[in-house]
Design a protein around this nucleic acid. Sequence first.
DNA 1: ATAATTAAAACGAACGTTCGATAGACAAGG
DNA 2: CCTTGTCTATCGAACGTTCGTTTTAATTAT
Lengths: 199, 199
Amino acid sequence: MKPTERRILEAAGKLFSQRGFHATGMRAIARAARVSLGTIYHHFKSKEEMLLALLREEYDKRRRAIEALKEEDLPVPEMIRRTAELHFRLLLETGPSLRPLAQGLRGLSPQAKRAAIAMREEFVNYLASLIGEGISRGQIRRCDPVIAAHSFLGMVEAVSARAMEGDGVAVRIQERGAVELAEIAWRALAPDTPQGGQR
Amino acid sequence: MKPTERRILEAAGKLFSQRGFHATGMRAIARAARVSLGTIYHHFKSKEEMLLALLREEYDKRRRAIEALKEEDLPVPEMIRRTAELHFRLLLETGPSLRPLAQGLRGLSPQAKRAAIAMREEFVNYLASLIGEGISRGQIRRCDPVIAAHSFLGMVEAVSARAMEGDGVAVRIQERGAVELAEIAWRALAPDTPQGGQR
DNA sequence: ATAATTAAAACGAACGTTCGATAGACAAGG
DNA sequence: CCTTGTCTATCGAACGTTCGTTTTAATTAT
């Protein structure tokens, strides 16, 4: 990807996550990327295409990281913990986070919305299969894997969203968030008979 | 509140939650409420004021319900369970749910944004104080109450959001969501020494 | 040459909002 | 009973702005 495209995409991602997709204008993106309006349209077909490119990047980042995690062949509960930390840290690091991006879904063109939802679903289903796997191995308690996966993502994203406000509470959450979330996720999914036991 | 205002507010709430705040135009609201543009502005100062009125209504609804729950003087873990179910069911019932509304925050005027965030914070802090109370009574494990509260809301809202899609998965989540969420919340917050024990 | 970038103008559409006109309700004064 | 005035509700045209996008011509880099 060319440096100009990178700069444009980064500026767009930052603005989308700060102000929301619909509240961000192409002129603001151009200004932030220090590029003209024409240049943006030289590289991207539309504003929606930029959003989808950003979503794709973020999901790919997580998919790669989780698959690397899978290589380590950890027990499933530990995978859950690490995935919580991973998702949380990525949300904090990358300005253009998934959460504000996904918020802009409503009001998109039907096909763009479908594409964005499909990406999200793919991610959720991957987590759900991970959880289902853990259940059949007895490493996770019996529960609805899809609901558990949505709960998992929802809580991580809500906490990270709060951590991105500018106040003092946000700072504490940035420090404590990952470990607290991992703890919550672990306890919520741990089997009744503690074979992997506490911690 | 006059019937016309009710109709306008209901239409606005439904559209905001379906398409998002920024993607919903005043003309669409007028059309859905079967009134003219002028009538809307006769009753409401601005589009933002409508959003804030809706948010206030929804938060009030929850505050009243939770305070009624508090009257019963249940053990805190049971309160957590019930609150999860309550929030989840309210999100499903009311078209104009808090989640899509809160999504529209970005891009609002500074004062409107401040007001909306303050409402959300008040709700979160109430839950956090509930959790803190439970900790000091030994009914909830030691954890960060604010992070736990955000996690709690985030997961309920994420699951309910998925439950509002139109497909078959959504139907199952509508049926199972409340009990699964209550289970997750309870396990995530239960103390290590099971005095209230399982269930 | 070919591609990348620029500034600027323009497009139609949609945006949130304002405004003047109209209609009905209700009461007061004749 | 009729008028007159005042109030509120409702309408729909119109305002000015901004939107995403396209286009054009000129300039710079590869």
